[in-house]
Design a protein around this nucleic acid. Structure first.
Length: 228
DNA sequence: GCCGTCAATGGGTGCC
DNA sequence: GGCACCCATTGACGGC
């Protein structure tokens, strides 16, 4: 059991995994935690200059801090005190947001520094970043979905237009529409006269040639006869 | 009372 | 095997 002062302090800070901090009290609090955005160390590229041992130690710190003793695991917490909702303060959220804008993932060292600066547990910082990434992804999915929806609408419209165009072309070919008749006349005028002329000329030339041969033969025959 | 938000949990997976 | 990460889900909370 904690005394009133300790309770008030905890409420003022609004911190601690599983600690119950009413939202209104958090937002109404007069004393805001002062944080400075010094992430030169914290925001190193992921895994840069951090070996496995270092990572392991940070991870171990997380777990040790989260579960100081074996009995204090999440299940027992739930059973004993119930799961309480923690709300981060505006300052904590905006600080984490700024960090996220710089790097969407954290190294264990960055996590540790952020946690210290915000007076949070490293695990809480880690969870916040995980949830933040999930939110970003969801938002991007929504944007992609909207874009694809517009593409779909555009293609549907194009499809409708092309179908209509195709239908019009088919009706031109099959049906005796005024336009179709006009096109037929135009085709006759441009093609038929020259074709007919050519055909008659060819026919004439052929007949004349045959007559020439006959006449020549007759001449030869009469001349031969006459010479004899 | 319902619904949306968000911190937190637990399981699965890939990497070293 | 340990770790970090992703993902689906849970549960607390506030707004309406």
């Amino acid at each position: 059991m904690e005394d009133d002062e300790a309770c008030n302090t905890r409420l003022r800070l609004g911190l601690g995994l599983g600690d119950y901090v009413p939202r209104r009290k958090e937002h109404d609090q007069k004393e805001k935690p002062v944080v400075c955005l010094d992430l030169t160390f914290a925001l190193r590229p992921k895994h840069e200059a951090i070996n496995k041992t270092e990572r392991s130690s940070f991870k171990k710190m997380d777990r040790d801090e989260e579960f100081p003793n074996k009995e204090n695991n999440s299940i027992n917490n739930k059973k004993e005190s119930g799961r309480k909702k923690l709300r981060l303060t505006k300052e904590q959220s905006s600080f984490l947001e700024d960090s996220f804008k710089l790097h969407s993932t954290l190294t264990p060292a960055q996590k540790q520094v952020l946690a210290e600066q915000l007076n949070l547990k490293p695990r809480q910082v880690e969870v916040w970043f995980q949830n933040r990434r999930a939110r970003t992804k969801l938002k991007q999915t929504e944007v992609d979905c909207e874009f694809l929806k517009k593409c779909c609408e555009s293609l549907s419209e194009e499809n409708r237009r092309l179908k209509k165009e195709l239908q019009e072309l088919r009706s031109l070919k099959v049906g005796p529409s005024p336009l179709y008749i006009q096109l037929q006349k135009a085709a006759t005028l441009t093609m038929c006269p020259s074709c007919e002329k050519n055909i008659k000329a060819n026919e004439g030339n052929g007949t004349e040639a045959v007559f020439d041969v006959v006449r020549k033969n007759n001449k030869l025959e009469s001349g031969f006869d006459g010479a004899n």
